[in-house]
């Protein structure tokens, strides 16, 4: 009994509500990303896109989700049953866990408490995201291996080596940013940018490297080597059906959402409202209205990046595997190291 009395119940309830809302929003955003993907693809290819379920095909994601649920669940006979089911679970879990350190807006004031719209403000914020992303590899690897299919295994190993290669360049760009911020906490990084000194203006090369690496980490075209249909049938989720396949596909869209949020937070000022003095506005019109607008602003930035992800997918064809590895190891990593050195020299002699 004593364990339960010593806890701060208000904090627990507050965080539990916040976590459920964020997970709910992530799933809804992921659902409508699929819709947006098909609509944008349609515009680019001069078609109409989904337009049967609801006005403008707005209920299409619900229909797709229902279809995935109703499909037959197949577990291959010679697969490793437990790991086969664990794989998509890990993919989804790691996709969801990254959202914990993203600050969604400033504090709101309710029930006599200042509630920060962030699940955990840990002082290793960026590294936490990095750690969870590196765990995401296991979803792909375990799934591909447990299927007991040569194509799945090859695709899984391809995907995993792609992800760990591009993680290096990503980490090196983050080091350059951290030299400027002096802090790993995402909330501190956003607060430093509140007067419109966005880090993208100080780290343009870093931002571009980060963006390219984000595409590779999310397995998005032009780097979707792990699900290259023309070479490996369906890729690592070849043997999956029903909602287990759905989890893999959904995890990719959640990853896109979270990496858009991270890019907006680290490089584009996070929840800062452009062309507006946030602190002054908060004093004049109240803290809660400000937080609402900040949330809206962050989501607009995220929406732009998601659109960019989709735009690139329907514009640029897939890389070959050796091109992918050459780009990662021989172009991005040296460039990121150079960027880091230049940043260090400028800070030292400025």
């Amino acid at each position: 009994m004593h364990v339960f009395l010593s806890l701060d119940w208000f904090l627990l309830i507050e965080k539990a509500i916040l976590i459920s809302i964020i997970i709910g929003i992530s799933l809804i955003v992921a659902m409508y990303e699929t819709w947006a993907e098909r609509k944008v693809a349609a515009v680019i290819q001069d078609r109409r896109g989904p337009n049967r379920a609801g006005p403008g095909g707005i209920f299409q994601p619900l229909a797709d989700g229902l279809k995935l649920f109703m499909k037959e669940e197949i577990v291959p006979n010679l697969s490793n049953k437990f790991l086969f089911i664990l794989g998509p679970g890990i993919a989804m879990l790691t996709a969801m866990m990254t959202s914990a350190v993203v600050p969604w807006a400033g504090n709101i004031h309710a029930f006599g408490r200042d509630i920060p719209l962030q699940v955990a403000d840990v002082n290793i914020g960026i590294l936490y995201i990095f750690g969870v992303v590196s765990m995401g590899v296991y979803g792909v690897m375990i799934g591909g291996w447990a299927s007991n299919n040569k194509f799945s295994l090859l695709a899984a190993i391809r995907g995993a080596s792609q992800i760990i290669s591009y993680e290096l360049a990503m980490g090196l760009t983050l080091i350059a940013v951290l030299m400027l911020t002096g802090s790993l906490s995402l909330r501190t990084i956003v607060e430093q940018q509140l007067d419109h000194k966005y880090y993208v203006f100080y780290q343009p090369v870093g931002f571009i490297i980060f963006l390219v690496c984000a595409f590779a980490e999310c397995n998005r075209t032009p780097f979707d080597l792990s699900e290259a249909e023309s070479e490996l049938n369906m890729g690592y989720h070849q043997e999956y059906s029903s909602m287990k396949l759905g989890f893999y596909l959904f995890a990719e869209y959640v990853n896109m959402f979270i990496s858009s949020a991270v890019m907006a937070t680290v490089f584009w000022g996070g929840y800062d409202i452009p062309f507006l003095n946030d602190a002054k506005f908060g004093q004049e019109h109240g803290q809660n209205l400000l937080a609402g607008l900040e949330l809206l602003c962050l989501f607009l930035k995220i929406a732009f990046f998601i659109f960019f992800f989709i735009w690139v997918r329907w514009t640029i064809p897939r890389f070959r595997y050796d091109q992918l590895m050459n780009l990662g190891w021989k172009a991005l990593i040296p460039l990121a190291i150079l960027n880091m050195l230049v940043t260090g020299f400028v800070i030292l002699f400025h």
Binding site: I124, L127, G131, S134, M135, A160, S161, I164
Partner: peptide, 23 residues
């Protein structure tokens, strides 16, 4: 910091390479 570095380096990188070889 130690916690997350332990995860990134051991669980995230070294064990992935182990899995590569074994698979």
């Amino acid at each position: 910091f130690l916690a997350i570095v332990n995860l990134i380096v051991y669980a995230g990188a070294i064990m992935v390479l182990f899995l590569f070889v074994i698979m």
